[in-house]
Computed example of a mutant assay.
Amino acid sequence: MVIKKRWIVLLMIFLVTPLLMLGSTNTVRADDTATGAQFYLAPVYPANQTDKTLGYFVLKVTPGQKGSVSVQVQNTSKTNTRKIQLTPTAATTSDAGQINYSPSPKKADPTLAHPLNRLFSKPVTITIPPDESKVATFEYIIPEAGFKGQILGSIHALDVTEEKSTTGQFGLHNKFAMAVGIILSQNPTQTLAPDLKLQQVRPGVSNKHPAILARIQNRAPQLFRGMTINAKITKQGETKTIYQYKLKDGSMAPNSNFDAPILGDEKGIPAGDYTLTMTVQAEGKTWRFKRNFTVTDKEAAKLAGANNAGNQQPPWQKWLIWAAIALAVLIAGYGLYLLGVRRGHKNDTADAHHS
């Protein structure tokens, strides 16, 4: 009896230990989540700032001008030194249809003549002692020929402090970031109208989901907000809507583009000929686009494969599920075994009393 119990206990330990190890590989420390960002970023306004109550930079500049932009970084931690990476960044438009002030891997729009980061000095990383602040300054040079409209971007701050867990080992930690926006303009009071184009329509993948990607381009050197989009896809020559997309309160950076994702079925998008009909409204203007496109057999198969790959579970997750099932069965079986032993013991005791 003792041998059987020891064997069961050892087997349970064997199953539980890997589960605990797997469960701890991708955790984030609770104190990191509770603490939040341990630094603060604020603009230091130069003389050519148009409004010192905004909380971001709007600078009036002239052709060939050399100037500087400074930000103050405050370490709000009382005990830890922070290392903050500061990067001048050109603004883009995310595929969610919103202005993005963070560094982006996407290729710059071909109409963007002067990305903000190319006008500014290089990124810097500063080290700030606990409860102290430092000022970082970036130099910029405006092109001799000047420019029309706006140049938009930010000073992006990322906490790159290396931290150890309570056990002394390096682990996964939240990466906190923030940004201070920058608008450069030769005439800050001037507002240019958006100039929107439908660049391309193609099948693709959005967040591991088959989609038709409609690339919308803002060719104007002017940011704008309050954009609404209504789009539908039909089979060519038909009127029934099979896929649709809606966006409210979108925004776009100057001289940027984004791929509006019109999601298809989970199983994919069948090969065939389709028509995209799209209406975009912003700044009191309306754009209507209509484009025929084709999804080839090869593209349809690729979309279906991408969706299946996205839905597949990693091998370790399958192992984890089977191990959990085995553990549950083992615990249930062990419980029934103990119940049977106790009942047998009671019966033996009753028989002994009767005898």
Score class of each variant (00 low, 15 high):
30 A>C: 08
27 T>P: 13
107 K>G: 12
37 A>V: 03
5 K>S: 12
97 G>M: 09
13 I>L: 15
43 P>Y: 08
341 V>Q: 10
312 Q>C: 08
190 Q>A: 09
135 V>N: 00
57 F>D: 01
304 A>H: 08
37 A>L: 06
55 G>W: 09
236 Q>I: 13
20 L>K: 07
320 L>T: 11
175 K>M: 14
198 L>D: 01
326 A>E: 07
265 D>S: 06
312 Q>A: 15
60 K>W: 09
328 A>S: 09
76 T>D: 01
68 S>T: 00
188 P>M: 12
73 V>A: 05
220 A>G: 07
336 L>C: 07
259 D>S: 10
276 L>P: 10
209 H>L: 11
262 I>C: 06
223 L>H: 14
157 A>W: 02
209 H>D: 11
23 G>I: 06
253 A>C: 07
106 K>E: 12
261 P>I: 07
108 A>V: 03
142 I>W: 02
157 A>P: 00
46 P>H: 03
297 D>K: 09
105 P>D: 06
316 W>K: 07
348 D>R: 15
102 S>G: 08
166 T>L: 02
15 L>E: 01
48 N>C: 01
107 K>Y: 14
29 R>L: 15
279 T>N: 10
9 V>M: 15
291 R>C: 13
254 P>A: 01
172 L>D: 10
13 I>Y: 14
88 P>Y: 03
181 G>A: 13
121 S>V: 01
191 T>R: 15
167 T>S: 05
187 N>M: 11
323 A>V: 13
41 L>G: 08
104 S>P: 06
97 G>D: 08
233 I>H: 04
233 I>P: 05
5 K>E: 15
218 N>Y: 05
114 H>F: 05
91 A>Y: 01
114 H>N: 09
61 V>H: 06
319 W>P: 13
105 P>A: 08
144 E>N: 14
101 Y>S: 02
295 V>N: 03
344 G>E: 08
187 N>V: 03
289 F>W: 01
99 I>T: 05
12 M>Y: 11
94 S>V: 03
134 K>S: 01
260 A>L: 02
266 E>G: 03
162 E>A: 14
284 G>F: 14
31 D>C: 09
315 P>A: 15
299 E>W: 08
72 Q>E: 13
17 T>A: 15
253 A>W: 05
326 A>T: 11
90 A>H: 02
102 S>R: 00
274 Y>A: 04
222 Q>S: 06
131 D>T: 11
302 K>M: 14
31 D>H: 13
329 V>H: 07
